[in-house]
């Protein structure tokens, strides 16, 4: 218990320190506009990757439609702030809830599907969302919405990112999270242990979509403008790559994955084609040589950092 409390305190102190240092750097303009943009993008990507990891990494439901949930959140938030002039806290809450509702709707029909069939169905559903957005004039159709008010600042981004990580971490480390992992490991055995598989699959989709909706809202109210094609198939793949790169079933892995790939895009942003080639090669190399991702299903922790990750990696690899 004392050990747990010490860890908790250490985590709180670390979070507060990260928040304060970055806030200071922003205040003194050491983190300039350009860096700040990439930092915010990184945080949005972390939220997306961690929430997809809950669905795909922990519950084992292979989803290729995460961008669809993000799109719902982004559009709801944009319409509420731009067209209805509602306050941002309300908009972000509504984004999360509407994405979660869509998550339930996506979760229900996909219950009967597994593996690649589920992947292709979620891909289809998110494409349908995008095509519908393309055809609604109220939200700007293909040209999208512009001049969305910018409400997102560092406190917002930080709170949402840290909140997502903490809530999903806590969920995973509870009886509910164990049920999700058990479904991933062996759904027939999980059922025989009294787990209502349908309930948990939908729950995972709902929670995952909820946070993707938040990411969408942050995106819309930071970047001023959005259009449907930003939420296509490639965006879903992008998020999946972050999760896979970091390790399916590792929350810290998703953070590392999001950071690595956001950094890669930042460095190569003037060479978009080359960036995609590298991206593709990275995917192939990871799958061929380390299919479990950087961290596998281990978590980066204080203990691990101190000891070096040798023994933890040894128990978790393969």
């Amino acid at each position: 218990m004392a050990d747990k409390r010490r860890n908790l305190i250490r985590n709180i102190v670390t979070l507060a320190a990260i928040y304060a240092i970055i806030q200071l750097l922003i205040s003194f303009d050491i983190i300039d506009q350009h860096l700040q943009l990439n930092l915010f993008l990184l945080c949005i990507n972390i939220i997306l990757a961690v929430s997809l990891n809950l669905i795909t990494g922990f519950t084992g439901q292979f989803s290729l439609g995460h961008a669809g949930f993000m799109a719902i959140g982004a559009y709801v938030s944009a319409v509420m702030t731009l067209k209805l002039h509602l306050p941002f806290p309300l908009a972000i809450a509504a984004s999360a809830v509407s994405a979660a509702i869509v998550g339930v709707l996506v979760g229900i029909p996909t219950l009967r599907l597994r593996g690649d069939y589920l992947a292709i169905a979620t891909l289809g559903l998110s494409e349908i969302i995008r095509i519908i957005a393309l055809n609604i004039d109220y939200i700007g159709g293909a040209s999208g919405l512009a001049d969305i008010p910018r409400y997102v600042n560092w406190p917002w981004i930080f709170a949402m990112t840290a909140g997502t990580i903490i809530i999903i971490y806590n969920f995973i480390h509870s009886s509910y999270g164990r049920a999700c992992i058990a479904i991933r490991e062996d759904d027939i055995a999980a059922e025989s242990m009294g787990i209502d598989i349908a309930h948990y699959k939908i729950l995972a989709f709902t929670i995952g979509a909820f946070f993707a909706g938040i990411a969408g809202s942050l995106y819309a109210n930071y970047f001023y403008f959005l259009k449907p094609n930003a939420f296509g198939f490639m965006k879903s793949i992008d998020i999946l790559v972050m999760v896979v790169f970091g390790g399916l079933g590792s929350i810290t892995g998703s953070v590392v994955g999001a950071a690595a790939l956001t950094l890669l895009s930042m460095v190569l942003q003037d060479l978009p084609t080359l960036r995609m080639i590298l991206y593709a090669l990275l995917l192939l190399v990871i799958m061929l040589y380390r299919p479990q991702g950087l961290l596998g299903n281990a978590e980066l922790s204080w203990k691990l950092l101190k000891r070096g990750d040798k023994d933890a990696a040894a128990t978790n690899s393969k």
């Binding site: 009886s175 164990r178 992992i181 062996d186 999980a190 242990m193 009294g194 079933g249």
Partner: peptide, 18 residues
């Protein structure tokens, strides 16, 4: 049909779920 990647303890704790 064990939950292979879960720890021995988690396998048992999972079953208390109901």
């Amino acid at each position: 049909r064990l939950f292979k990647e879960m720890t021995v303890l988690d396998n048992v704790m999972l079953a208390y779920h109901v």
